[in-house]
Design a protein around this nucleic acid. Sequence first.
DNA 1: GTGCAGAAAATCGTATACAATATTGCCATC
DNA 2: GATGGCAATATTGTATACGATTTTCTGCAC
Lengths: 236, 236
Amino acid sequence: MKSAAKAQQAEDSAETGAQQIRDAIREAIVERRLSPGTKLSESDVGNLFNVSRTLARAALQALSYEGLVSVEKNRGAFVAYPSPEEARQIFSARRLVEPGILREAAARITPDDIAHLRQLLLEEGRLMSERGQTARRAEIKASGDFHLMLAAISGNSIMQRFMEELVARSSLVIALYGQSTASSCGHSEHGDIISAIESNELDRACQLMLYHIAHIEADLDLRERKSLGLKEAFEL
Amino acid sequence: MKSAAKAQQAEDSAETGAQQIRDAIREAIVERRLSPGTKLSESDVGNLFNVSRTLARAALQALSYEGLVSVEKNRGAFVAYPSPEEARQIFSARRLVEPGILREAAARITPDDIAHLRQLLLEEGRLMSERGQTARRAEIKASGDFHLMLAAISGNSIMQRFMEELVARSSLVIALYGQSTASSCGHSEHGDIISAIESNELDRACQLMLYHIAHIEADLDLRERKSLGLKEAFEL
DNA sequence: GTGCAGAAAATCGTATACAATATTGCCATC
DNA sequence: GATGGCAATATTGTATACGATTTTCTGCAC
């Protein structure tokens, strides 16, 4: 039953237009090419991808379900602008589920999986040392992929989808409230977690995961900023 | 910060047509008025609710995100027919998250909340003793509401939404694979969990929750049944 | 110059129309 | 009588069209 997880996700692969657009926009949001609050008008999205408003709308609705865009009735869709409270809930959810996912993943992990994880880590490290926007974006993605890969290894596609949502929304939160210039994740911590799994120190791995999430969260400044838009306009 | 959770969910309340349809269909699925595998053609749904296919389609797409209907490209939408593997994953996910939710809920529960929970329990018990389809359906709903209320009390609206999905899909699984005539949940177990929370025995409450989920799962017959549809037509 | 009312523009919400694909039934053929 | 292909039908995928709501602009009164 080792390949049960991946079998069910590679179904038709013939995606229905709207899904392609959804994925493209999601990627743009996660990689921070689209800033929180940016307006995503249906016509604009449609024109951009050369499709009708129908499809654009469908894509935006889908993203709204994932919490990456917020649609306001009769006003339009915007890249989500998570409140500090929302941010707290996102990380609270991650602290809640990631240790469990880690445990399940550890139970069914194969040497092959570990190799993949290490490879991912290497790639991440390489990107960290590189300069430039594209490298930065790729790094953000790679750093999230570590957590996603664990979810994939766990073999539970429901948790996997949930983690995808949480990681994506985390990226938004970090974009909004992150302070340090260093991007999202402490790179070394990922490696430590893998090592702990590898040597079967499950409790320690979970502990490390919790620390890791706490570290990400500690880098945020979640103080409520009222009418930031005004101030920002002057200070920037 | 006690009412932070509910504040953000009661936004406009002016739902956009499609959402009303989505909710109506979801309720029908959860209450098992719609059987797994039932075809939900866009035209039929539209006619039924006196709206265009556009809205019907939007509603079905939304339900597909929740895993309650599966849409197959160029073939249409059907009430989801979770595979045994999917069923396992759903309950695996519940075992993963519900103890954590319980812990968070216990941390911020108020006497008022406990009263509500007990009231829910009372209602559930009343419905159990009643006869008739409507009572049965209401009971199914009430039994799920217990778990959902815990999620609501936890104050994490993300986990709450996730639990809503899991509970709804559980209902489908039980409809498909449940054996006992007794409906979904062991009623008394809900009460035990509340008591454990009330007396601050947190670990015990979590343990009871895990037992409870295990009990539900134990009532399922998840053996793979190949080409059931055919056989069923003859045996029924 | 300020403020408000009304019109114009833009954008969303929903319906309808047309094209593409899948399903079904029929008939010819073997 | 069974099989294979073609036409008819039904259903989904996508685009366009129209009405409703919101936003923006304009001009007039004060």
